[in-house]
Nucleic acid binder design. Structure first.
Length: 275
DNA sequence: CTGCGCTTTCCTGGTT
DNA sequence: GAACCAGGAAAGCGCA
């Protein structure tokens, strides 16, 4: 991990979770965006593991693919190893997202400049079906809150559950309503799933049961606000949004325990087996 | 323009 | 008293 002990929380958060306008629905002019976010535009060959993860996160963000759609642990490697992967390796590691990643890293290897590569790719967020030189490269959009049409974390190389297998056949389906890119519960989940990007903000209380606890409630709220470009976000407001999830069974109540929540039956992608 | 889904904001009242 | 929890009400926002 490249974060030094002297790094402030705020700078850590900015560095790890991106600027306030990291939304793909903001027009993508990657030069400024990336130059701020992507401070290490060195050749991918020289990336650290952490930089590889940052790259992954960026690509997922840009394509509005849910971060849990790919098993990040399959990319526990540095840039040198990443660059040595072939097309099949990416398919194997990231399923249907593999081609996107492969294409992206290939361009990067050629250009050595992240922002150049993004510019070349015409990755308009509004193009629901990303067209790519590789066959069958349509990708799943983010997960859906709607339990009846839950779009999948499809990209796992080994879809084990019946749900996942079924959803695999629907990979061309255009995403349903997801106006702000990432829902709050997905944002929370992604913090939990990326410990390297979670500087003590939220922790699992019971990993298998999906119980977690806010350690720095206001910091999480600020981070959420940052993501939504809303500097007045507070834990008070965030928690109100969390409470709305009870009714939809995305979260379950945990009585008597402050700052503790539990993922419900309609929350997807948090289980280890789903990753 | 309208309706919908997901917050965001504000609020009152209760609990730890 | 501060921090948190519960949930109603209404408004904002992006999208189909």
């Amino acid at each position: 991990m490249s974060i030094t002990p002297t790094t402030t929380l705020d700078s850590q958060l900015s560095a790890t979770w991106g600027p306030t306008n990291s939304y793909p629905d903001v027009p993508i002019v990657m030069s400024g965006y990336t130059s701020r976010l992507w401070s290490h535009d060195s050749h991918p060959q020289f990336w650290t593991k952490y930089q590889v993860w940052e790259w992954l996160q960026q690509v997922m963000d840009i394509h509005q693919i849910d971060a849990s759609s790919i098993p990040f642990q399959n990319f526990d490697m540095d840039g040198h190893q990443l660059c040595s992967l072939n097309y099949q390796d990416f398919i194997h590691a990231a399923g249907s997202v593999g081609p996107i990643l492969f294409h992206n890293i290939t361009e990067l290897k050629w250009s050595g400049q992240y922002h150049v590569e993004i510019g070349q790719l015409d990755l308009k967020p509004e193009s629901k079906n990303f067209s790519c030189p590789f066959p069958d490269v349509s990708y799943p959009s983010g997960e859906n809150y709607d339990p009846t049409i839950h779009l999948p974390p499809v990209a796992s190389p080994t879809p084990s559950s019946p749900d996942l297998k079924r959803s695999y056949t629907r990979s061309h389906q255009v995403k349903k309503h997801n106006p702000r890119g990432t829902h709050l519960w997905e944002f929370i989940r992604d913090i939990l799933l990326n410990p390297e990007r979670n500087p003590g903000l939220i922790k699992w209380e019971d990993r298998t049961e999906g119980v977690f606890r806010f350690l720095k409630s206001e910091a999480v709220a600020q981070l959420w606000g940052k993501k939504k470009n809303n500097s007045s976000m507070t834990y008070e407001k965030l928690s109100r949004a969390m409470r709305y999830y009870y009714k939809r069974e995305i979260l379950e109540r945990v009585d008597g325990r402050r700052l503790v929540y539990k993922f419900g039956r309609n929350a997807r992608g948090w289980r280890e087996s789903e990753k």
